[in-house]
Simulated assay, not measured.
Amino acid sequence: MSAREKIAYLKGLIDGQNLTDTPDKAKFYAALVDALDSLAVAIEEHEDVHEELNAYLEQLDEDVSDLEDELDELEGCECGCHDDEDDDDEYEDFDEEEYESVTCPNCGNDFYYEPALYDEDEDLVCPHCGKPFKLPEE
């Protein structure tokens, strides 16, 4: 029996037993049934949301599973175009000691530049906003 059916049964019992012989009792039982009915509505809404979220999570699980399968296929590929070692080589070329971080005074974004490539009086151009500015004093 659902919550709404139980509430309807309770309301029938109250009406059938003639428990509302005084206005105060009638008001009390009406308020009680109304409160229970509101709770039943809230429960049904939560059940709907729960079912919706469950369906969404099942779809996400399927999507992740599909992606994992695709990655497994790529790892098994013998063409050499999906080698993880190639990715590592790209990052090995970046030597942090050769670069310095700077904040653009115009847009406030941080970026790296290679000081060895710039003269002291040369302007640095921000890759974010494209505006030139003087190199910071060391």
Score class of each variant (00 low, 15 high):
residue 1 M to E: 09
residue 4 R to A: 07
residue 4 R to Y: 05
residue 8 A to Q: 14
residue 8 A to V: 12
residue 9 Y to M: 11
residue 10 L to V: 03
residue 12 G to L: 08
residue 12 G to W: 07
residue 13 L to P: 00
residue 13 L to V: 04
residue 14 I to D: 00
residue 15 D to Y: 09
residue 15 D to S: 06
residue 15 D to M: 00
residue 15 D to G: 00
residue 16 G to N: 10
residue 16 G to C: 09
residue 17 Q to Y: 06
residue 18 N to D: 10
residue 19 L to W: 08
residue 20 T to I: 02
residue 22 T to F: 01
residue 22 T to S: 04
residue 25 K to M: 00
residue 25 K to F: 02
residue 26 A to W: 00
residue 27 K to I: 04
residue 28 F to E: 10
residue 28 F to N: 03
residue 28 F to T: 10
residue 30 A to M: 02
residue 33 V to H: 01
residue 34 D to R: 06
residue 35 A to Q: 02
residue 36 L to N: 07
residue 37 D to E: 15
residue 38 S to W: 00
residue 39 L to K: 01
residue 39 L to A: 01
residue 40 A to T: 05
residue 40 A to N: 04
residue 42 A to Q: 06
residue 43 I to S: 09
residue 44 E to Y: 02
residue 45 E to R: 10
residue 46 H to P: 00
residue 47 E to L: 15
residue 49 V to R: 08
residue 50 H to L: 10
residue 50 H to M: 05
residue 51 E to M: 14
residue 51 E to Q: 03
residue 51 E to Y: 04
residue 53 L to G: 05
residue 54 N to P: 00
residue 54 N to Q: 13
residue 57 L to C: 14
residue 57 L to K: 14
residue 58 E to W: 06
residue 58 E to N: 12
residue 58 E to K: 13
residue 59 Q to E: 12
residue 60 L to E: 07
residue 61 D to L: 09
residue 61 D to A: 15
residue 65 S to Q: 10
residue 66 D to Q: 15
residue 66 D to M: 09
residue 67 L to H: 10
residue 68 E to V: 12
residue 68 E to P: 00
residue 68 E to A: 13
residue 70 E to D: 04
residue 71 L to K: 12
residue 71 L to Y: 12
residue 72 D to S: 10
residue 73 E to F: 04
residue 73 E to A: 13
residue 73 E to Q: 11
residue 74 L to Y: 02
residue 75 E to L: 07
residue 79 C to N: 02
residue 80 G to T: 01
residue 82 H to P: 03
residue 82 H to Q: 09
residue 83 D to K: 04
residue 84 D to N: 09
residue 84 D to W: 00
residue 85 E to D: 06
residue 89 D to E: 14
residue 90 E to H: 08
residue 90 E to R: 05
residue 92 E to M: 12
residue 92 E to P: 13
residue 93 D to H: 11
residue 93 D to M: 02
residue 95 D to S: 09
residue 95 D to H: 14
residue 95 D to Y: 03
residue 95 D to A: 05
residue 95 D to W: 04
residue 97 E to A: 11
residue 97 E to N: 12
residue 99 Y to E: 08
residue 99 Y to N: 11
residue 99 Y to M: 13
residue 100 E to D: 06
residue 101 S to P: 03
residue 103 T to R: 14
residue 104 C to M: 08
residue 106 N to A: 06
residue 107 C to N: 10
residue 108 G to H: 11
residue 110 D to N: 15
residue 111 F to T: 08
residue 113 Y to M: 07
residue 113 Y to D: 13
residue 115 P to Y: 06
residue 116 A to E: 15
residue 118 Y to A: 10
residue 119 D to A: 15
residue 120 E to S: 15
residue 123 D to W: 13
residue 123 D to F: 05
residue 124 L to T: 03
residue 126 C to E: 02
residue 126 C to H: 02
residue 127 P to M: 05
residue 127 P to I: 01
residue 128 H to K: 04
residue 128 H to F: 10
residue 129 C to K: 09
residue 129 C to F: 03
residue 130 G to K: 06
residue 133 F to Q: 05
residue 133 F to Y: 03
residue 133 F to M: 03
residue 134 K to A: 14
residue 137 E to D: 12
